[in-house]
Simulated scan of single mutants.
Amino acid sequence: MWLNGHEIVERMAARAGLEVTALANGFAATTDPRLLQDLADQVQAGTLRVFFERWMSRLPLPLHDADRDRGYWWQLSMRQIEISRTLVIDDPRRVRTLFEQLLRDNLDLGRPEHLEVIFARRITRRTPGVFATRLLNRADQVTLNLSFLHSRIKIYLKEDRALRIETVVNNPADLGCPRGLDHLAELLAKGRAANARLMDAVRAGQGAGVLASPVIERTARPTLTEEGRRAPALRFGDPRVQALAGCLAVMLFAVTGITNKSLRAWMTGLLGTAYSMNQAGYDLARLRLNGLIEKIPHANTYRLTGDGQVFAVVYSRVHDRVLHPLMATRHDPLAAPPEVRHALKVIERHIDSTVATAHLGRVA
């Protein structure tokens, strides 16, 4: 049995007198989004059973009414379920640029530690399967696929008008659900949660390009909390702050949470020097006061906030992808692209000329 959920909802909308604008197997617009969502939520296991029984009454079958009276009948299980989220872009002219930037900045999402967060499933060395990012480029569509066991999650453009996130579950056990149709609602909830977590990761990455973000403005200088407590600054470029940003960017913390012990382990590795329990306690406190982490009730564990995601991505990405390559060109000529190296040489030549004219001598 094969069913297209969008087709079912579109027919339900027609019966309800609701106007919708179709977008392939999706919706581009509607006069009442809330009602459309309510109709979509009505597509549950019972809907599929009614469809199945209606056709079973018409098709020739090896089982007859006498067999059914004795308890022998068909039992439905889920072989493949696709749970999608369609984000329609207001300005289609910019959607292609947005999508290309999204692909470029998220090619590492297929790593096991990232998929562990997106699918909320534990991945160990014994977990079977290949975890990778695959970029499929066809003439009409480019798709970013993230493989997870027998299933996958993908991002692509829908008719150059909408961003489509789609979790394809080929084995419900991949998400911790039994195959029986009775568990459809549970599987749908987990698929939608995976779509949402993927969008959170993508949104943090895309939002990182705006350095004028209120999060960055707040954390870059000392501020006061709503309770009047002083929140110490987390200054960009400070080695310890950069290491903290690198730690928060470790997506494993989104699953396990952040503790004093786990922070010490990562900070010691990033700093290359000893990092004490007191230092970890102080850094956790200033991260919390700046709203970048929050304490989990009844536990000495912290979770990353949305502002914390932005802080981690901005500080890490700008430092590692922009400043470090530019500053390293003097010692490593290949650290930056040829165009950037050429521009830096021109700038350096003009600075040397200006200094020589002013008789200041060269500054090391």
Rank of each mutant, 00 (worst) to 15 (best):
L284A: 00
A220E: 12
P214L: 07
Y282E: 10
V210N: 14
A220I: 01
G306N: 11
L270T: 08
G180T: 15
F236P: 00
R164L: 07
Q279C: 07
T305Q: 10
A220N: 11
M199A: 13
A265V: 14
P172L: 05
L287C: 06
L263R: 02
A254R: 15
P239C: 10
R240M: 08
Y275S: 06
N171M: 06
Y302L: 05
L270Y: 08
N171W: 00
L248W: 03
N290G: 09
C177L: 04
A280Y: 03
A254V: 07
L211S: 13
G228Y: 08
P297W: 02
N260H: 04
K190A: 14
K190R: 15
V169N: 01
A193S: 09
A212H: 12
A249Q: 14
C177V: 15
Y302C: 06
G209V: 14
G180Q: 14
V255T: 09
G180I: 00
R164H: 02
E227F: 01
E227K: 12
V255N: 11
A265F: 09
M267K: 00
L263C: 06
L292V: 13
C177Q: 03
T268R: 15
T225G: 05
G291S: 08
W266N: 03
V210W: 13
L244P: 02
L175R: 06
I293L: 09
G228H: 07
P172F: 08
E217Y: 12
P214N: 07
H298T: 10
W266I: 14
R197V: 11
V210L: 11
D238H: 14
S213V: 01
E217L: 15
C247Y: 06
T223K: 03
E166S: 05
A299Q: 15
S276D: 05
P222C: 09
V250Q: 11
V169Y: 01
L175A: 10
R288W: 02
E226K: 12
D200C: 04
L211D: 08
D283E: 04
G207P: 05
V250D: 14
A280E: 04
R218G: 02
T167P: 01
A280T: 06
P214F: 09
